[in-house]
Amino acid sequence: MPPVIKVTDLRKNYGELRAVDGIDFEISRGECFGLLGPNGAGKTTTVKMLTCALPLSGGDITVDGLSVNNDPRGIKYILGVCPQEINLDPDFSVLKNLVVYSRYFDIPYAEAKKRAEELISRFHLHDKLDRPIEDLSGGLKKRLLLARALINKPKVLILDEPTTGLDPQSRRQIWEEVRGMKSNGLTTLLTTHYIEEAELLCDRLVIIDAGKIVEQGTPKQLIQKHLDGKGNLEDVFLKLTGKHLRDE
């Protein structure tokens, strides 16, 4: 089966800076694929190019056979994007946020309302249905972002640091949701710098640093290869990317 996402020699330059410096990977259908790296490694830049929010300096990304260079709209119809930053509409209620967002995908109102209500009950947001966004906790906002990313029934879900800044309870709840979606066969790309999260959720992952892939494989393979099977993925991560602090 052809890969759902195929990234070929992807590049992004900002003047002299090579934010993404020739990376390649493929994601198969139904796979949960991790994109790991310290701050400033190029994760978010890669995600932005994949979601057609940033033009490429070189290379190509195809999603379900469509190229970001030729058919960004076609790709955006089939992507679900759960962003790192909370960019919900503060002027709208929980329900209205979902309904307004569904309009961007040309989903008719009756269908949008049906999907929104399903998602609200699935993500346990029904108590907050008519509440404004500012009344929600950080965990609930993230859950709503995740629900919003599913409103167009995407073929591929992009999770950009979905649990950053959350308490352990909310984090676990997001993990449960992601696992549920995975068991339903949804292809997922996850970026994170919580190594535990990647170890738990990802079938396969790449570790990137300074815009390049430094290692790839399954979490088990990486631990086996670098630590003789003794230790966890975080040790592998630190071994490969060094222990010095990173700037954003």
């Binding site: 979601t51 057609c52 929010a53 709209r73 955006k76 119809y77 992507l79 994007v81 962003p83 930053e85 960019n87 919900l88 509409d89 967002y101 961007y104 995908f105 040309d106 167009n152």
Partner: peptide, 8 residues
């Protein structure tokens, strides 16, 4: 930023 990842 939210809308740019939709078909708009």
């Amino acid at each position: 930023d939210a809308v740019i990842t939709t078909p708009l």
